[in-house]
């Protein structure tokens, strides 16, 4: 507790549940097991969220469903002097790369393809592990969830880029940019996967890490 402890070495700890207490995730106060409302901040208390997995899978599935049209339909519709061209997410990345902006192309590719796909895999993997843990190395699970939870929001970059382009490029006949249907699908997909990650009770992953470390 001196601020130098590293999680990777201490996989076992006395949890609030072990001690017959329930901790508040909003304000970190502990209450006796069975309390439903935190006396300090008024938040809901539950030692281990029992319905969390259902919500995780429901949001995960909806997010995945919206991710498919998000990649098939155009994100941007550009009209320049009578010619209209459409660009999907991947198309936009290729276009950036052709302009020589490899760094930006990399950021957009990472934010709109790698992060969402990685997130679907990571949440699915964690949700399966929590149910049936065997043969996994605890260290590989340690901070996977935190990374997933933190990085998910950054997928919104592409939606904001579309919004900025649409607002700026309105030169009537010369050039106009309009949003495509994929922008909506992609934004929804990001929101749903964020909700999926937020429904996850990280304390259950740590329970499993402890169990696996015991084996």
């Amino acid at each position: 507790m001196d601020g130098t402890g590293h999680g990777a070495e201490n996989l076992k700890a006395l949890t609030a549940l072990d001690a017959g207490l329930v901790g508040c995730r909003h304000c970190t106060r502990v209450a006796p097991l069975g309390a439903t409302i935190c006396t300090r901040c008024g938040g809901a208390l539950e030692s281990r969220d029992r319905t969390s997995m259902q919500r995780v899978w429901a949001w995960w599935l909806v997010g995945l469903l919206f991710f498919i049209p998000a990649n098939l339909y155009p994100m941007l519709i550009t009209q320049t002097v009578g010619r209209a061209s459409e660009a999907t997410i991947v198309g936009g990345v290729i276009e950036l790369a052709q302009h020589g902006a490899y760094g930006v192309a990399g950021i957009v590719f990472f934010a709109s393809i790698i992060i969402p796909v990685g997130k679907f895999i990571a949440i699915g993997y964690l949700a399966l592990i929590v149910r049936k843990p065997h043969g996994h190395k605890p260290k590989s699970l340690l901070h996977l969830f935190e990374v997933v939870e933190w990085i998910g929001r950054w997928s919104m970059i592409d939606v904001f880029v579309v919004a900025i382009l649409v607002a700026l490029v309105q030169f009537n006949l010369l050039a106009t940019i309009n949003p495509g249907i994929a922008a909506v699908c992609f934004a929804l997909s990001v929101v749903f996967t964020m909700l999926s990650a937020l429904s996850f009770d990280s304390r259950r992953i740590w329970d499993q890490i402890e169990t696996i470390a015991d084996e």
Binding site: G3, L14, T15, A16, D18, A19, H26, R203, W206
Partner: peptide, 29 residues
Amino acid sequence: DLVCCPVCDALHRVGEVDDDTRVRCIRCN
């Protein structure tokens, strides 16, 4: 003074914290 880690539920007894130090969870940091 009893504090639970919001991420992994580990219990800690945190009293007065010295200036310019951070108390981290013993398990998940």
